[in-house]
Every structure is written in structure tokens, then in C-alpha cells.
Amino acid sequence: MRVISQKRMNSAIMVAIFLAGFVVFHFIGRYFVPMLAYTRHEQPVDFSHVFHGNDVDMSCETCHFFYEDGSWSGIPTLDVCMNCHSEQLGESEAEKVFVTEYVQKNREVQWELYFRQPQCVSFSHSSHVKEAKLACETCHGPQGLSRHPTKYIVNRITKYSYVVYDSASSTIGSALVRSPEENVWGTMGMDECAKCHRARGVSTACFICHK
């Protein structure tokens, strides 16, 4: 009897060790690796969309607009900001930093772009906004309602924002985004693009999205 139980004991220990190994490494793979693989950056300037949009009552098009040739301006360059901020407006710390560090030194702000696509992608804002009449929020989420810039979480290997690929993968997402404020809404992966294109019967030819 004792011999048998000793054997069973041994087997049980073996199984336990096996399971322990499984759990530990699964956990490492699921939570620890994403934390290692991604790094978080602060935006250089504490920008508030709400302030500009609601309190100053600017329209979105003041900063984000189409150029004459139908290409998209994206994040405004310093000269757009300088239309108002050529001198310090208000007393906030962010404004002080912005004016002294960037406006006065005539230095472009190196914004981290959550939605920056890989360089092989040519995304046409025009086709999505003007032709398909998609709202900005469809892809970008309620960015316009942010009071502070969200942390920028970037993959160390690929140098892409996690939004571009990984927000669709809930496990990685939950390992990365620690609080709701850190979450950048939306996803920009190719699979998402393709899904929507197929659903709407839009061309999925390579050159439609790739350059």
C-alpha cells in the first residue's frame, strides 16, 4: 500500500510540477512579455482637445483639414498652432512649455501618433470621410473628448503604437492598458480594414491601402 501511494505521490508531484511550469510560463507569456515588449511615452505637450473644442469653441477643421489636393493634413504643424499661440495665452504650465520650448524656438512638436500607420500604408482620409462618409469616431474613437493626451504605448520591436495592431487582441490590450484613461479607442490593424472593406464591398486590391 505504502509503495503504491508513494508511486501515486510521485506521479502527483510530477503532474503538479508540470502544471506549475505551465501556469508560470503561460502567465509570463500572457502578461509579462507584453509589458516588456511595450514601452509607454508621455506626449511632449499636455494638449486638451476638450479645451480647444468646447471652451475655445474651435471647429475640428481648424487644425485637421484636407489640403487642396485632397490629402489629409493630419496633426497640425507648428505654424497652424502659431496662428493663435504666437504669444503665450493664459497661464497654464502646458502653455508655458509649449510657447517657450516650441513656439519661441520654432521647433516642431514631436507628437507621438497613436494612429500612425506603417510606412507601407497609404490611408486615404478622403475616401473614408468624403466618399464613405465615415465619422472620425468610427476609427479614432472619442479622441476629441480627451482633456489630456493618452499615454503612447509603443512596441519596442516594431516601433508601432499598440493601437495599430494590438488593441484588437484583448489579452495583450488588457495587459498593456492599466486604466481606462490609458486606452486609445479604436484599432487600425489591416485585418480590421479588410473586414470593413469586405463588408462594404470595397476593393481590397493591394494598392488601395499599400504604397
Binding site: 489636393d69 485632397g70 490629402s71 486615404s124 478622403s126 475616401s127
Partner: peptide, 12 residues
Amino acid sequence: HRYIQAKNRARQ
């Protein structure tokens, strides 16, 4: 890419 640009311009 010029096809895409042409489309963008047309939409504009």
C-alpha cells in the same frame, strides 16, 4: 499611388 491621389483630388 497616383490613382489614389487622383481619386482624392476628385473627391476634393
